[in-house]
Design a protein around this nucleic acid. Structure first.
Lengths: 228, 228
DNA sequence: GAATTTCTTTACTTGTGAGTAAAGCTTCAT
DNA sequence: ATGAAGCTTTACTCACAAGTAAAGAAATTC
């Protein structure tokens, strides 16, 4: 640990505080609706301080957005090695717990709402979030295909199918209705059904896999911790 | 046809012009970003005229949004009666041609972006668009189940699966990247794959249905006309 | 065709938000 | 400690946007 001079240390902390505040305020009010005074107040500083860290509202917005790139969990990087069905269940829950969190949904709404004015942000988010995750799913599905447990021609389509089956319905609903977030029971229903359909269409041994899925469903599922 | 007095006729026309202009401007700039002067200019009137039709910016926004409720096609109301696979293909294309149009995507972005400030609009849209359509799909799938061609327990889940398989991937991408709208060839790829997976998981006769699907795929698909 | 009513516009008021200049304070080097 | 440097604040400017008052134009009625 290099010991930074107190000034620079403070400066870094404040920059983070400002970006955190910007996320909160922009997510709640939208880009045009958010005022720099509100961001400053939320960050515990005053407006000119903001402008000593960033030259403009737009630059704060962009810095904040691009800084949030690595929020996405590398869900598919570390399979649990307890068999494909168990792996898929773990992945599905980890992913659901990530993208269905209220802050992530707010961020998604913000990006979608502003993407026509800030196209780069949409591209950056797409590349670092969904696309990155999709490649993870693809790698995993491919490994299962090589092991002879799945059969498909196009790994990308298969991965998109898995995503679409498991989470598109609850996520779409959550995007449109912030008040009515799905509870864990209905998430479980979506995940169970999605995996069932996916396995039926893609598994080389649908019967046994479905039996295994039924057996695992009663297992308790722990919520992923995100407070790190 | 009752002949309205010229005054009232003009008034109705102007109201429509204002709401159309509001849609354009709000969709392009967002609620906070749009100015009433811009709406007025787009509608070919001046600001006080706006305020003689609607009491406030918010009321224009709400009237415009709720007026757009019935845009959604009643795609699933009139099956083509050429067999389930052909029906599903027609439905899929009609739906794709509706929800993937740039204006519909802009509207969706606007709603998603503003839904935290206007929750009623999200609910209204969800009820009249997606939910309404889902019920149509459900009715159709149910009829096919009664006819013994499909097998499932929960029609709602089956309908959501169909939707998620066919359109969630391209639509999600289109929402995040307005510049990179998917072309018809890749839409066709999604639809083909989605139907294949759906039939494999839900059809009581997967083999024959898939053969039929292959046979139909080369058929020319006409784009739905929306200019009425 | 003139009077009346309704609608539309020109020309404002008021508030708010982005961005800044200059003064005051804190931290570090000597 | 004391002077110099940078950082933060108070107190502005300027521009733009929501909403309005009063004058002017158009249409309807007698």
């Amino acid at each position: 640990m290099t010991v930074l001079p107190r000034r620079q240390q403070n400066r870094l902390n404040r920059e983070r505080a400002i970006l955190d505040a910007a996320l909160k305020v922009f997510a709640a009010q939208g880009y045009s609706g958010a005022s720099m005074d509100a961001v400053a107040a939320e960050a515990g500083v005053t407006k000119p301080t903001l402008y000593s860290y960033f030259p403009s509202k737009e630059s704060i917005f962009q810095a904040m957005m691009l800084g949030k790139r690595d929020v996405m969990l590398d869900v598919f990087e570390h399979p649990s090695d307890q068999g494909m069905v168990a792996d898929l269940l773990v992945f599905a829950w980890a992913y659901a717990d990530t993208v269905m969190r209220p802050e992530m949904l707010s961020l998604a709404r913000l990006i979608i709402g502003e993407v026509q004015r800030f196209p780069e942000i949409g591209r950056a988010y797409q590349a670092s979030g969904p696309d990155h995750l999709l490649r993870g799913i693809m790698r995993y599905l491919d490994s299962q295909r090589r092991a002879g447990r799945l059969a498909f021609e196009d790994a990308e389509l298969a991965a998109q199918d898995l995503w679409g089956l498991i989470l598109s319905a609850p996520r779409t609903q959550a995007l449109y209705m912030p008040d009515a977030q799905p509870d864990r029971a209905s998430l479980a229903r979506y995940i169970r059904n999605g995996l069932r359909v996916f396995l039926k269409a893609y598994s080389t041994a649908p019967g046994p896999d479905l039996t295994e899925l039924e057996a695992l469903q009663s297992a308790p599922t722990q919520q992923v911790n995100h407070d790190a």
